[in-house]
């Protein structure tokens, strides 16, 4: 078979036109997912079963099912219910973009809350006891001791999840969104050249991953300043 280089140079700029959608999906889901993750974490460590159980159920469901299936259920399934069509969320859920963000948020929120929990559990018990002995309240200990230390501990795993999330945005193309992958699929449908187009697409994702990795590497270095000064 032949490999058409000019097709690559032509299709890359076209696909990059979708990078805006990819970024929007990524950043919106990352921010909302992180907020959700913190809420789930607080519910899990609250020590109250009626908060902890729902959080665990959420995590179990969203870690236990493929994200593509979650996207399909939200996009094709939710509009079947009248109360959802009547709700204030309908303008968001009517659009594939809203459905994709919702699915990605719920999914990443489940994973990240577990990552954060790992960080919280990794905080040295002695440090927290010292806080108690000095008279700090549970809340003060959480804000001034647990949070900064757990953040550093959780960051490497979190950066992994962030990269997964970036790549998972490509699944939004299955519900008609024209992100980079969506555009690539359109180009393939027109040119019948899957090889060139998808390899170009893969290269773009790889570069994005590299940038994300480097950025997190810097944050990690900053947060570890007190470990390796």
């Amino acid at each position: 078979m032949s490999f058409d280089l000019s097709l690559i140079t032509e299709s890359i700029p076209k696909m990059l036109a979708g990078i805006g959608i990819t970024f929007q999906l990524m950043f919106l889901s990352a921010v909302l997912g992180l907020i959700l993750a913190v809420i789930l974490l607080l519910m899990r460590i609250s020590g109250k079963w009626y908060l902890s159980w729902p959080a665990q159920v959420h995590i179990y469901i969203f870690r236990g099912t493929p994200i593509l299936v979650q996207i399909f259920i939200i996009y094709y399934g939710l509009p079947q219910f009248e109360f959802i069509r009547d709700s204030v969320f309908w303008p968001i859920l009517r659009e594939p973009f809203g459905c994709a963000v919702l699915a990605l948020t719920l999914n990443t929120g489940a994973y990240v809350s577990e990552i954060l929990r790992g960080g919280v559990l990794g905080v040295d018990r002695g440090v927290l006891e010292a806080g108690s002995a000095l008279g700090l309240s549970a809340r003060q200990k959480f804000i001034y001791l647990t949070t900064p230390i757990a953040t550093r501990l959780a960051l490497p795993a979190y950066s992994n999840d962030f990269i997964s999330l970036m790549k998972a945005t490509s699944l939004a193309s299955t519900i008609t969104l024209l992100d980079m992958t969506g555009i690539a699929r359109t180009i393939v449908a027109q040119t019948f050249a899957p090889y060139e187009v998808f390899i170009s697409l893969a290269i773009i994702y790889m570069i994005l991953t590299w940038i994300i990795q480097k950025s997190f590497g810097r944050i990690e270095k900053y947060l570890s300043r007190y470990v390796n000064p």
Binding site: V127, E129, A130, P148, I149, Y226, V227
Partner: peptide, 8 residues
């Protein structure tokens, strides 16, 4: 084990 706050 001292238990100083390592991040401060």
């Amino acid at each position: 084990s001292f238990n100083l706050f390592p991040h401060m």
